[in-house]
Nucleic acid binder design. Structure first.
Lengths: 68, 68
DNA sequence: TTACAATGTAAATGACGCTTTACATAGTGA
DNA sequence: TCACTATGTAAAGCGTCATTTACATTGTAA
């Protein structure tokens, strides 16, 4: 599941730590999601969408799972 | 995180087993999500939205977490 | 009554999300 | 050079997601 978190962070000039603080998660979690190590939980995906004032569908791209 | 899966299932006249088959998960997983025992993963949430041709935001309601 | 479908629930197990601490690299500025 | 920020990665641990098998209840139909 791809996402454009890195670009959104850049547009806001936020470090991974900045975003992690706003989300209430660790910097490593943000990094892992950005680098595709795993997908966020649904509640965290909602928080991310809220912070950037976008929908989950706008930030996370479907059709990128390997189990399909 | 509340959802309207039960209503959507009823509108399509699907049993929990029917939906589980379409999602590729167990019937117990569908039941657990409906009864609020846990939230689906983000990929599963996307599959659910796809099957009902809706957005994740339409099916799952934010503002229902207890950790807020 | 007997059989079956649909739903709710429970326990044990494995995989994943997220944590913490820690180390490494690259870039920037004093 | 030295210090600092930003990023990537690793390992160990905990809680949640999702599985399987299994049992119970309710309703319906033969």
């Amino acid at each position: 599941m791809k996402n454009c978190l890195k670009v959104l962070r850049a547009e806001n000039d936020w470090s991974q730590q900045d975003l992690a603080n706003r989300l209430g998660v660790s910097r490593q979690s943000v990094n892992a999601i950005e680098t595709g190590k795993y997908d966020p939980s649904l509640p965290l995906a909602f928080k991310i969408a809220d912070i950037f004032a976008m929908t989950i569908e706008d930030i996370f791209e479907r059709g990128q799972e390997e189990g399909e």
